[in-house]
Design a protein around this nucleic acid. Structure first.
Ligand SMILES: [Zn+2]
Ligand SMILES: [Zn+2]
Ligand SMILES: [Zn+2]
Ligand SMILES: [Zn+2]
Lengths: 131, 131
DNA sequence: ATCGCACACGTTATAGCATAACGCAATTGA
DNA sequence: TCAATTGCGTTATGCTATAACGTGTGCGAT
């Protein structure tokens, strides 16, 4: 059960995100895809739901926006906790993963007897170029 | 330059959050305060902006909602990175702080020459009671 | 074959979250 | 007194997300 073949709409949304410099809101994606027959937000949101499920796309909660996953590895298994730096200047988003963070959070949460389903880590600030 | 005296609207919003079991959206707060003369979203958002600035309230990005800060210490200085567990079952939100996470994130971000302004850590899942 | 089901899709309408822009009043400090 | 700041109230608008309905297509079971 890896990533299934994408449907037409899913491919279009994936393509839009993959070729974008930075994160895009669902409505921005919609606008980019009007020429390809997209007319309504739901067409985008439905595709995004699947792409998120497949792990091809991440949602940035603090921006209400979406980015293509930049993980080098295959998307066939859940990659663990994903963290992002988000530059307020140029909009650049960098995805990264760290085993240390993951373990530390896991320990803290275990101490609460809390069962984690999804972890959001987003760091807003300025990148090297925009400092 | 600690926390200034709160205005009437700020106190009302702060009170609503402090007496609530869980996080509240701005519009939920608005509804709770209609009897106290609140009529428009901006009255809530403006108060929230200040309360966030003073560190009395936190915004939960993954919920578009707000909670009163539960830090024991005074709010006169920035408390460092704040993390939350959020139970999908009962809505309970627990705020916590960890020096280890903070240092690790700080090191990772420094490696990118990234200048952090605000860090969001939110863990969605189920609490002990709701497991 | 054809029935039933799952799934993607299209459309309209609606709900939920947040801010722009205007004007007024009270406070402060030069 | 005058200007600047801050809070407040109101109306309008914009952005984000989902509900609800119906259509069509593929595919396995009968
Ligand atoms: Zn990824
Ligand atoms: Zn930048
Ligand atoms: Zn706090
Ligand atoms: Zn719970």
């Amino acid at each position: 059960m890896g990533t299934p073949q994408l449907t037409k709409n899913q491919s279009l949304v994936m393509g839009a995100l993959a070729h974008s410099d930075g994160p895009m809101s669902a409505y921005t994606i919609l606008d980019k895809l009007r020429d390809h027959g997209f007319r309504a937000p739901l067409q985008v949101y439905r595709a995004l739901d699947k792409l998120l499920e497949y792990g091809l796309v991440h949602r940035l909660e603090s921006l209400n926006a979406f980015v293509a996953c930049t993980c080098p590895h295959e998307h066939e298994h859940d990659h663990g906790v994903t963290a992002f730096t988000i530059c307020e200047g140029c909009g650049q988003v960098t995805e990264f993963h760290d085993e240390g963070i993951e373990q530390r959070l896991s320990a803290l949460v275990r101490a609460q007897s809390f069962k984690t389903e999804k972890t959001t880590i987003e760091i807003r600030g300025h990148c090297k170029s925009c400092a």
